[in-house]
């Protein structure tokens, strides 16, 4: 009887026919259109304009519509391509490092602690987002400077004779800034994908005699890959576009691509700034395409919905 009722419920059309149904159907379409319109106006149109302007010609201080590759050609052999290359390397390094740390934290939270505790810790990881990024980065300069808290403590403890210069205005400081800025973002998708793995697979693996490491390598890691890729994407996109961290923590002109784009706009070279931006956008699109082709996005997003329910 119960089963029959259930079946009837499923068989019921999603909404009743007639005027009410008509309005509901249209309401649904309108609601679906709103985010599309939003994305169109605030994302697709500006990105399209950026790509378009990158082909424009400069005429004195202004620029005029044209199809010119001049901005792209000017990149070849210049320092800006080196900056792009460095940005990619730094973003990859920071993403990899963040991934290792975030995975460990997410694994621990999803597998080793009570869900209630995990939620509290996850909430705590949102606290860094409440602090202005400039304040956060400037705080590092206070902590890590030659006369900062860390160096003072290290010298006082006799760990080192003189303050460690590489703590600030260095590759280390930039990595630290990037990791602390984007790693917390990465915990959430990892936590979701690890948490959604059916524990029975892991128990089965253990029963069949696999070591915990083998279970992790052959079961947990592959099944959490959509989350890993989502996290990597969050981290990589953020790190590649970052401009405050290199300025505040990088020292002698630690330039990343965001900085060189701003700098070219200072002399009103908008086509060049647009060309650099277009290249970065293209790289991001390729990454997204890779994600789309390799992973079924529904498997990941579906789990978010399950978790919320």
């Amino acid at each position: 009887m119960l089963a029959l009722e259930h079946r009837q419920q499923i068989a019921k059309p999603p909404f009743s026919v007639g005027w009410r149904g008509f309005w509901q159907a249209w309401g649904r379409r309108v609601l679906l259109c709103l985010p599309l319109i939003f994305v169109g106006i605030f994302l697709v149109v500006p990105l399209g304009l950026t790509v378009m302007i990158s082909f424009w010609e400069r005429a004195g201080l202004k620029f005029r519509p044209a199809f010119s590759l001049a901005s792209y050609v000017s990149l070849i052999g210049g320092a800006r391509l080196d900056v792009l290359q460095r940005s990619l390397i730094v973003a990859l390094e920071a993403t990899a490092l963040s991934l290792v740390i975030a995975y460990a934290i997410a694994y621990f939270l999803a597998r080793k602690v009570e869900p209630a505790t995990a939620r509290i810790v996850l909430v705590l990881f949102t606290v860094p987002f409440l602090i202005n990024y400039i304040v956060r980065n400037v705080s590092y300069t206070v902590l890590l400077g030659r006369t900062g808290v860390v160096n003072t403590a290290l010298v006082a403890a006799g760990v080192t004779d003189a303050p460690l210069d590489w703590l600030l205005y260095s590759d280390f400081a930039v990595l630290l800034g990037l990791v602390s800025a984007y790693m917390p973002f990465m915990i959430f998708p990892l936590f979701l994908s690890i948490g959604a793995i059916d524990r029975q697979y892991i128990e089965a693996s253990a029963l069949l005699g696999a070591s915990p490491f083998t279970t992790f390598r052959t079961i947990t890691l592959p099944l959490s890959l959509p989350g890993v890729f989502a996290a990597a994407l969050f981290g990589f996109v953020g790190c590649l576009g970052e401009s405050a961290v290199p300025i505040i923590l990088g020292g002698v002109g630690y330039e990343l691509i965001g900085n060189t784009i701003t700098s070219s706009m200072d002399v009103l070279n908008y086509p060049l700034a647009a060309a650099l931006s277009s290249i970065v956008i293209l790289l991001m699109l390729l990454l997204m395409l890779g994600w789309y082709l390799v992973f079924d996005m529904r498997s990941f997003l579906g789990r978010i919905l399950e978790w919320r329910a």
Binding site: A79, R80, N259, T260, S263, V267
Partner: peptide, 15 residues
């Protein structure tokens, strides 16, 4: 040569 200044300064910072 303001644009040359800017691109050279970029070179200095990126070096």
């Amino acid at each position: 040569e303001v644009e040359f200044y800017e691109s050279e300064w970029s070179r200095f910072k990126a070096a």
